[in-house]
Amino acid sequence: MDRPLVCVGVLVWGPDGRVLLVRTTKWRGSWGVPGGKVEWGETLETATKREFVEETGLVLRDVRYAQTQEAVLPTEFHKPSHMLLIDFFARADTFEIAPNEEIEAWAWVELGEAHTYPLNSFTRTLVDLALAQGEA
């Protein structure tokens, strides 16, 4: 029997206050944030830090919970999937990205300008939350 996948995602602020957006192979050309599946025995924070290092090469600090979203068969995703998306905010001390094979492009942008990118709907919600909470 199939079950929902537990996944983490993280909106990260760099040293100058810009946030990292990425375009990956999994979201049909739309932009989002780094993240991925939680492994057996792994805490959400550990999974967030591991996925971020794997995808970008950057180490996170000040990881804090942002929100939880349901993604039930989203058409934006590259295959049929049911995911529980647990989102975080965090910081990184450098801009030097070492992308893995999933990341096609990346950009450090002002939070208020994130909506000028074609974001997937789940990242739009996360950016909206950061704006509403006055995150910086």
Rank of each mutant, 00 (worst) to 15 (best):
V72D: 15
T123C: 14
L44Q: 07
F95P: 01
Q67D: 13
G17E: 03
V59Q: 12
S30D: 08
K37E: 14
L11P: 03
F77G: 07
E39T: 09
V127F: 02
R124F: 00
A71I: 05
L129P: 02
T43C: 04
E102D: 15
W106L: 02
W40M: 14
I86V: 15
P4I: 08
V10W: 00
K79V: 10
T125P: 03
W13D: 05
K26E: 13
E110C: 00
C7N: 14
E113C: 02
L119K: 02
P15K: 06
G17R: 03
E76D: 13
L84N: 07
R28P: 00
I86Q: 12
L20W: 01
D93H: 09
W31M: 05
E54S: 09
I103Q: 03
L129F: 01
E70S: 10
N120D: 13
L129T: 02
V33G: 02
W108F: 09
L20A: 07
A130C: 03
A71E: 15
G17H: 05
L119H: 03
V109H: 00
L129D: 05
R91M: 07
T48F: 06
Q69V: 11
A132N: 04
D2V: 15
L44H: 05
Y117N: 00
E96T: 12
F95E: 14
F89Y: 14
T75W: 13
E76W: 15
V109W: 02
W108S: 02
V109S: 00
I103D: 00
T46K: 14
E39Y: 13
V12H: 04
A98D: 10
T24H: 06
P4V: 10
E45N: 02
F95Q: 10
E101L: 10
G17L: 05
A114S: 03
Q67M: 14
V109I: 09
I97M: 08
G17K: 06
V63N: 08
A136Q: 06
A136Y: 00
H82E: 11
G112Q: 02
R23K: 14
R3C: 09
T25G: 12
Q67K: 12
W27T: 11
E101N: 06
P99L: 04
P74D: 07
G9R: 06
R50E: 09
I97A: 04
T94D: 14
G9Q: 08
L85G: 02
G14E: 05
E55C: 07
L85R: 12
D128I: 00
S30Y: 10
E45S: 07
R64E: 15
V10Y: 01
E54R: 12
H82P: 03
S81Y: 11
S30F: 10
F122Q: 05
V53H: 12
